[in-house]
Design a protein around this nucleic acid. Structure first.
Lengths: 233, 233
DNA sequence: TTCATGCTTCGACCGTAATCGAAGCGTCCT
DNA sequence: AGGACGCTTCGATTACGGTCGAAGCATGAA
């Protein structure tokens, strides 16, 4: 029979613990050097080098050379989404890496999903924006409505600044901890950057976790809280 | 660091070619016996037994004993969705199992995705129904609108017949060949069964492919074609 | 009961792939 | 220059896991 695309080739790549750890690390969206990824995988540089080569020829990651460093990133948003899907399955059964680390609650509250906001806060934001009619929902795409454009404008977020890549402006991404959608795409990326620039949230070193500052928490609730103008839920 | 759930355990399960083939075979939605799966994987029964055990303790499949047979199925729709996501990545790069088989075009036109209709026809149906306002789209769920209920009624599809499981009535599922959503959930399952019962489409033996009968093609176009009453697109 | 079938467990074999030491090649710094 | 650093290639070792034969245990049929 052998119908459809070959799953196993890709899955075997992700299936090695060392490579899995590397990919998880890259889910922060940060570009990491080969040696950083080596320590992430818990091995020597030469082992890591071999793994990275395989991941790259497998189409899961890409690199660009800069000086004597090689910076690695995930190859595409599609890869990130597939990894999140896998995390969703893994989180459902079996614990979070045998025992749920102390950092786990923080991850569920807010974290980075490649380049945009995920976790409870990410879902909250998306729900609120959707409920207030900021999106025009067509069968295959998600676009900003006029109200959405106004809202983004009030945030002082200049959309013209966004790179004019072919990537869609808005996109849904399924959250592994919440099992609901949050906002991805160029806008999702821009909004996370915006929050970080204003110090409303900042990254925990060496983790995907995001921490909200007191100021950030206040602002975020004002923008996307339950008792916001048009009434979310 | 070691953030989030452990991807590798699951991915390694899928990563073995024998197990990958078994899972692909189960994507037809049919329950298969251990020996059938053994031949699917191209190995002996005792090897298959070991694989099936691992897949089951890994939470990817489930079985029920019947007489002296053991029937295996995918553990949940979530598993099926994750597998489709992996297929999406694999289909993007690298060919469909090294050389695209002759059955590939048929698969892209219409196929079974675990228990519902996928492929170009699945996407077409979902687009059409969505464009005609058959769904009420809330942030997290998809429900039938009154118009949708009427439409389903005209099909002589009795929703009360559907099992009252906790699974959602409607659900989106990302199509690996089309990279767009098609309809899953209990309704998706019911509609596929409906099409099959009326002999509008039937399954190709030992494949996920679906073939439309001449009658079925006519009916399907009448129901979901481009020039249908409310005008899709 | 006796025999066939469907499937599992046990044990041994074997191949593949992960791992690391040693060495090599660029790049940056002084 | 010289030297440190980042990373890769090569080669040898090792270990894990897939594979199958043989045997065991049920169920179903005669």
């Amino acid at each position: 029979m052998k119908d459809g695309p070959d799953i196993s080739r890709l899955a075997a790549l992700i299936g090695d613990p060392a490579r899995g750890n590397m990919l998880s690390a890259l889910m922060t969206g940060k570009a990491l050097t080969a040696t950083e990824l080596a320590s992430e995988a818990g091995g020597t540089p030469q082992t890591a080098s071999s793994h990275l080569k395989k991941l790259e020829t497998g189409g899961l990651i890409a690199h660009r050379a800069q000086g004597r460093h090689r910076y690695f990133t995930l190859a595409s948003d599609d890869v990130a989404r597939t990894l999140e899907a896998l995390m969703g399955l893994a989180a459902g059964q079996g614990e979070t890496r045998s025992r749920t680390g102390p950092r786990d609650p923080a991850l569920r509250e807010a974290r980075v999903c490649y380049n945009h906001l995920a976790g409870a806060r990410g879902v909250q934001m998306f729900r609120s924006m959707r409920a207030r009619g900021f999106f025009v929902i067509t069968p295959d795409t998600l676009d900003l409505s006029q109200a959405g454009l106004d809202f983004v404008g009030e945030l002082r977020l200049d959309l013209n600044m966004l790179p004019k890549s072919r990537a869609p402006m808005c996109r849904e991404c399924l959250d592994w901890s919440m099992r609901q959608s949050h906002l991805a795409g160029r806008l999702g990326r821009a909004m996370l950057r915006h929050f970080e620039n204003r110090a409303w949230m900042h990254r925990v070193p060496d983790s995907r976790a995001l921490v909200l500052s007191p100021e950030g928490r206040r602002r975020f609730e004002a923008l996307f809280g339950r008792d916001v103008p048009q009434g979310a839920t």
